[in-house]
Design a binder for these strands. Structure first.
Lengths: 119, 119
DNA sequence: CGCTTCGTACGATAAGCATCGTAGTACGGG
DNA sequence: CCCGTACTACGATGCTTATCGTACGAAGCG
């Protein structure tokens, strides 16, 4: 009854399994300013956001590229919803693999942002 | 008076000041497997180690390169002692800039190592 | 002084990556 | 069925980087 996951609208996106996520990959993904910014916004909002919600200083193709890097490194989960592509942090998986790391990184990023904002 | 820093044996190495250390740079530095390994060993030993102490799967020139990346990103401090170059983590600076981050990263790296060792 | 040990500098090379533009596909609405 | 919106795919480009080899410099030892 009710196969929990319905036909995913035919368009599927490849995500690494939880145990395939590598720390080096996560760190590399977050070492780019644009991607770090995306992750910070995702963490702030606590809801899934569409790609077009972000106002980034790069073109749309570059944005697509950054989102893919984040997905393939295991940092975010992406799913289609109509024409929009929704993005959410993989908090559960990351917290399980590396407890506390994500919050630590977000705190560090926030501190640096504050400091450079002349706080 | 007494200029606290005596003549440093003539050979000096450029380090970024504490406030110049960037989170993105640190993450990028640690996103390389070889460099992550170096940092883990440095954290384990709690003493300053010479470059030649490490048995890395790369040549000596590449090793020099990796140590420089770590130094220029602010992760380690390097000083000459005779013919040897000693390396130590910049724990004080990193803990001040990003409290808890270093330990979090080291714990995450250790967890991943254990997991992949079939623990 | 010569020799060894430790590390550097420089050049080469190949791979990776951030960026863009253009052309195209999927979905939803009139 | 046509159109707009959202995102992708592909190719190009120029920069960064990980790697190596070889040749060199600096410190210590006999």
């Amino acid at each position: 009854m009710t196969t929990a996951a319905p036909a995913p609208s035919s368009r599927d996106l490849p995500h690494p399994a939880r145990e395939e996520i590598r720390l080096e990959g996560v760190l590399h993904a977050l070492s780019d300013p644009v991607r770090l910014r995306i992750v910070r916004e995702l963490a702030d909002e606590e809801v899934r956001l569409s790609c077009s919600h972000f106002d980034l200083p790069v073109t749309k193709s570059t944005t697509t590229h950054h989102f893919r890097v984040l997905r393939e490194s295991g940092v975010i989960r992406q799913t289609y919803e109509g024409t929009a592509k929704m993005n959410g942090l993989r908090r559960d998986d990351l917290d399980d693999l590396f407890p506390g790391l994500l919050d630590c990184l977000l705190t560090a990023a926030a501190r640096q942002a504050d400091r450079h904002r002349g706080a």
